[in-house]
Structure formats: C-alpha cells, structure tokens
Amino acid sequence: MSDLRALLIPRRLFLMALFAGFVIWCALSLRWDWLPQYLPLAIEGLWRTIWILVVTVVLGFMLAVPLGLAQAAGPWYLATPARIFCTIIRGTPLLLQIWLLYYGLGSLFPQYPWIRGSDLWPYLRQAWPYAVLALTLSYAGYEGEVMRGGFASVQKGQLEAARAFGMPRFTIFRRIWLPQAIRNVLPTLGGETILQLKATPLVATITVIEIYAVSSRVRADTFIVYEPLLLLALVYMIIAGLIALMFRWVENRVPSRRREG
C-alpha cells in the first residue's frame, strides 16, 4: 500500500502523465505498421532470448559453485586454475569470447573427420551451441568470484558445529555451507542475472535470431530506426523488472536475521 501511495504525489503524477503523453505520442505519430508482419518473428526471438538466459544462468551457476568452492577452500592446485579462469573471463570482453568460440572452434571442428562424422555434428554446425557455451562460461566466471565471497562469508562456527555433530562432509556442504552461501549472495546474484540478460543481445552477432536480432532485421528491412529500438528497450526493461521482482520474492522467502529496515 505504501508503495502505491508513494506514487500518488503530485510531481510523480506529473511525471507519469508526461510518460503517458510520450507513450501516446509514440503510438500515434511513429510508424508501427511493420509490427503485425514481424510479430511472430519477435515472439520467437523473445522466446529464444529467455531460453538462452535461463539455460546459461542455470548451467553457469552450476559451474560457479565448484569454481567458488575451489577458490574459497580448495587446495592450491584447484584454487589457482579456478582463479585464472575467473580472471580471464572477467578480464576480456564477452564479445571477443563469443567470437573466439564461434569462429575459432567453428573453423577448427570441420578439420577433424571424426567430429564431422559424429552425431553431434548437426548441432555443432549451428550457432546456438557456441552462444550457450560462451554465455555459460561468462556467467560461471563472474559468479565463481561471487560464490567465492559467499562461501568465505559463512561463519566458521557454523561449519565447526556441524563437524562436531559428526555430519559427513558432503552433508555439511549441502545442508549448511551452500544454503548460507547462496543466501548471502542472493542480492548480488539478482544483479548479475540482469547483467546476463543484457549480455544476451551479443549472440545476435553470431547469427542467433533472438529479440535483438529481430529488431535489427526490422531496421535493415524497413529503414525504420527508432520504433523497433524503443520497443526493444521496453521489452528488456520489462524482463529486467521481472527478474528483479523474482529475486526479491525469493529473498523474502529466505529466512534471514540480517534484514534491516
């Protein structure tokens, strides 16, 4: 309720009226006649964006947990490679990584007959496996660093208590260490997932037709510049808002003593 009341202050009503005016102006005076023709393609592209986002976030997080654990508590022969991997991923542009995998591996694979003959070849000839691989590795690299902090921030006493009760090591990890580490980094993870959403349009450069690529095609076909881009920005804002809401919902469900205000 208080959220709603905060919106009903005169200056905010004024801003909202201004925004509504802008939307109406956009709807009336800009060109939208291309929309019905491209709508099926746009929905397909939107679906592909969300699909890539969900798959890479899930796979990347599964990779990030061992990466973070190796850096936080692993022996040096695991910690050093994990740290080098995270540094390389975080130190080079994602676009370069995507192009390295797509053009590099894509030009390497056809040289080996046994790869060409394998059952995977029909997939390896397409672009999306490289897109998914690059985005997964990127998310894993950033989240590995976040999870390192998450694992390190769990209090020592908790782990010692679990050990004192004779919990097996894997149970300690599953029941005590991992849940608290994830709880500690949940706000960061939400932000990083929005960053991952903002990274998805890069895969359009390797011919994956997601929502950004659809808007580029509209621009190339019809020479209409602003309308597809504005709509695209709106779509991304809505998805980002949904991600933020989802993470806030999860955060509120997780019991936490440290909640302030």
Binding site: A199, V225, L229, A233
Partner: peptide, 17 residues
C-alpha cells in the same frame, strides 16, 4: 534505472542515432 536495465548494445544504437 533505465540505463541499468537496457542492454548496452541497444543503448549504443539508440544514443548513436
């Protein structure tokens, strides 16, 4: 909020044009 929610690539195109 808007800048942080919209992909840089899209912003670059919009701001460029």
């Amino acid at each position: 909020t808007v800048i942080r929610a919209v992909p840089e690539l899209v912003l670059i195109l919009i701001l460029y044009y």
